[in-house]
Design a protein around this nucleic acid. Structure first.
Lengths: 257, 257
DNA sequence: CTTGAACCTCCAGCCACGTCAGGTTTTATA
DNA sequence: TATAAAACCTGACGTGGCTGGAGGTTCAAG
């Protein structure tokens, strides 16, 4: 079987780099069906089959399913359909790429965090990862419920700034879990709250903060947002934190007057 | 079942955005196994399960398989393992991304070709797609068999330049298929060959062309390269083309003397 | 007490193959 | 020409991460 024009499946596999099993499979689903030796049943591939396999591999590379490839191969009008579907596939790939890029930057942020913080409570860690992952869902939420410019401005923050906020948040979470149980008016607690609020101010900027406070959003919608990013605190801790923050705000108001 | 701490599977699904069927599945594979009502068998999800699911979803987002997630969840030492595997996953994602980017630029080149050329013979088209797809395998081949700098220089060509070469090649292929049969010394044939060779020179640049000619590569290795990118021509056409090119080179040499 | 929604379990199917197992055919060597 | 080894065949099952359907049970409202 060393002829120039006829190949056994082994030779064919070697030449094309496609595994024997895959060739069997393509035969089975009618994608590439070579001649068969009438008595032995051995497959006989020819030059034309190389070209066909080429098409198959190429279309696979472009992202087509084998079923679609099968259709394309047996339709006569190729290029019409091709041009259309190529554009579609390009879009799909774009989305896949964005997804991957998001995951990558999320991982980088987590790695950085682990480097800088050492051990991190896993509940806290996952709250952060989750919020990274839903970053653009959150953005959509904001665009629905507030002026779009706020959302735009928030999402434009650099990776650097986001990373800083991550750390602040981790710091807060750690301290909350340490200090939980102390009375909310304890100076240490109040110090922590103040530090956190100031860091948030620094991240958001004064005018954005004001805009956020002004935007009145309905209770139900807030619920929806909270469902998206569950907190790393127990219900008790969360309530304690809320009280501490309220107390801090009240003090701030008193001082201003 | 409207308590604050107990959810039916439906409620839980709604809150978390994970489908009921998937929750069943996670239960089945031991990833997230909520309590069950002793008589009815209905699943009872609690607050803790939200947190666990959160971890699951986050780790999935980072690219872990459900099996690994299962291991991670049941191991106590989280962060040690995490830090290591995160770096690994980052690399894997990087590769995936490169793959996608390659497909995307291939598709863009094909779309551009179709726009500019109208109909393209599918054999020719797939030769091009295949060569795009194996571009870095080819680069590796070059790095093995020639000085690495040649390979480096070739792969640095811009998309623009590659696109131009694509068109030249298509043009060549079209004309070969038209002119095949005419004697190789026919002026029209020789004109075509000259145009093609000049375009190739323009793409490669003079010094690169020289380096390529100097690099003596063994016949067997050439075979290997040719297997990677089969030509869109029949064997006859290919041979005719080779003869025409040889003739052209000879003429050029005669003229030079 | 009835109706219908929500829930249960079990089985099948998806894609693009990989991986045996157990048998036949071809090829190379003695 | 006999035989061993390599290559080939078919058929069945496994993979991951689900989704869908059938057919039966339980729950909540009227």
């Amino acid at each position: 079987m060393k002829g120039n024009n006829k190949f056994s499946i082994g030779e064919f596999s070697e030449r094309t780099g496609i595994s024997i099993r895959t060739l069997h499979y393509y035969d089975e689903i009618g994608l590439l069906q070579p001649e068969k030796h009438p008595t032995s049943g051995h497959r006989i591939y020819k030059h034309q089959d190389i070209l066909t396999l080429q098409k198959i591999v190429s279309l696979k590379f472009l992202g087509y399913s084998l079923e679609k490839i099968n259709n394309l191969l047996h339709e006569s009008s190729f290029t019409d359909d091709l041009n259309e579907t190529l554009t579609l596939h390009l879009q799909a790939l774009e989305e896949e790429k964005e997804q991957i890029e998001q995951s990558m930057s999320a991982i980088k942020r987590v790695i950085k965090l682990l480097e800088e913080e050492g051990e991190v409570d896993s509940a806290i860690l996952f709250t952060l990862i989750h919020s990274m992952q839903t970053e653009n869902i959150q953005k959509e939420w904001m665009e629905r419920h507030m002026q779009p410019d706020i959302a735009e401005e928030l999402s434009k923050k650099t990776e650097e700034e986001k990373s800083t906020l991550d750390q602040t948040f981790i710091q807060l979470a750690k301290e909350v879990k340490q200090l939980y149980g102390k009375p909310v008016e304890d100076p240490i607690v109040q110090e922590m709250i103040k530090t956190f609020l100031e860091a948030s101010f620094a991240f958001l900027g004064e005018d954005l903060m004001q805009k956020l406070a002004d935007a009145n959003v309905e209770e139900l919608d807030i619920q929806e947002l909270e469902n998206m990013t569950p907190s790393p605190f127990t219900d008790d801790e969360q309530q304690w934190l809320n009280e501490a923050m309220e107390y801090c705000m009240k003090q701030a108001e008193l001082n201003q007057e």
